[in-house]
Design a protein around this nucleic acid. Sequence first.
RNA 1: CGGGGCGUAGCGCAGUCUGGUAGCGCGCACGGUUCGGGACCGUGAGGUCGGAGGUUCGAAUCCUCUCGCCCCGACCA
Length: 498
Amino acid sequence: MVYMSKALPKRSENYSEWYNEIVKRADLAENSAVRGCMVIKPYGFAIWEKMQRALDDMFKATGHQNAYFPLFVPRSFLEKEEEHAEGFAKECAVVTHYRLKANPDGKGLVVDPNAKLEEELIIRPTSETVIWSAYKNWIQSWRDLPILINQWANVVRWEMRTRIFLRTAEFLWQEGHTAHATEEEAVEETHKILGIYADFAEQWMAMPVVQGVKTASERFAGAEDTFCIEALMQDGKALQAGTSHFLGQNFARSFDVQFVNKENQLEYAWATSWGVSTRLMGALIMAHSDDNGLVLPPKLAPIQVVIVPIYRSPEDLAKISESIEPLIGALKTAGLAVKYDDSDNQRSGWKFAEYELRGVPVRLGIGMRDLENGTIEVARRDTLTKESRPIDLVSPDSFVAGIKSLLDEIQESIYDRALRFREENTFLVDTWDEFKEQIEKGGFIMAHWDGTAETEEKIKEETKATIRCIPLVSDEMAGKCVYSGKESAKRVLFARAY
RNA sequence: CGGGGCGUAGCGCAGUCUGGUAGCGCGCACGGUUCGGGACCGUGAGGUCGGAGGUUCGAAUCCUCUCGCCCCGACCA
């Protein structure tokens, strides 16, 4: 109903409609003909590529290498690690046949019943099992360790309800899978990656996160410990933005991956796995954007600076285009992603609105008046403010330096804003009544918990709030469980979550 | 799988109750006037009304079957 209007739905009125519209209107992605799957459009994919590049560099810098493992997982592999199998069984797509044939009863194609697979192939919901079946052959001695592998891939989890970017049946991600000679080293790896994820979220996405460990009930199927980064979205719900798992020797046992240690004894290898997905796109949108559209952190924006000419005649446009050539060159030389939009099929006002919708951090507007005055209009997407700045169009280097520092300032500023939002929406809660009341309003709740799965479950049933994590950094002040009144060593993080 | 809703032009919708030449807005094409925050006027193109069957002189509209999508719940990065 509001779709036709130029304005987006308001966050305050209908948050999920606002989210869906922003994804569509900013041209990030669309729903596909296949249920639960999305088409990521070029503009959206460009953001994902920037995320990939930054993360990939961080993985490489810490000694990891990329590789690729198959899409198909034999059923017998998935079965091997019992908890893992149980955890993923109910959301697997299964390949049972390898051939189609012409429909003998009419048009089209049907599955050829003679082409039934001896053993079903599961479309990977994650790759631990295929990878550890390969590692078995890669690992003989402690000298073969550690193995530090990452892969960029798609996975499929047959979700009952999907939401674009946040929970799709197929999604893109990276999954790291490492093997180590000692428990200490594997645990260290788990933490190292968690740190990388937190740095990426904060420094690139400008999204503050809480690092923590999951409770047993929220743990990855097959893990000893699951660490996570949790972010707070603008509607007060939590979003798990990345996970890093310490897998112990569970997969090594299941796949019989043993190595000879320095003492010439056989030992099972220690494992980790970790991943972030296209869900981060959803996080990015919900962390910063406003009722005018997307707000992108400069470091991840496919277009960092857009230049919009303001003119009447083709002659004016030609004059502007010629005058700003050195500027465009200088911006590019400075390493900035710049777009000069001289297209003639939309007017400047339309372009202003469009680039705001798409979240371009800085917009430069230049018209004939500016040419005369030696000025240019600089507009900030995050604050929606604009100012006229002087510019020497012949040698614009100092102006460009100013734009560069403005982009840094924007990156910092949207992080600060998100951090302030999280601080203002994190509540210390000590009574059950207060808990029930606050959870309705949203936000992070720091409360004491007695450590039992029963209490955790009861709280979830009564309030839909889950323990997002037990924060790694917190003041270790003992208290009483907000639900049961029993002893508690420290507060944990509760929220309703995506 | 349970409970709701919807399939009509590229997109968003009206028309269905009460059967009678398939419409509106946006977008698109062309021409003109405009142009410092989503311009306006004129002309035009574009539809197996999700699919199949039935009732009828006549079906987008009534009946039967069927396919698909969306929202709410149970599952989850």
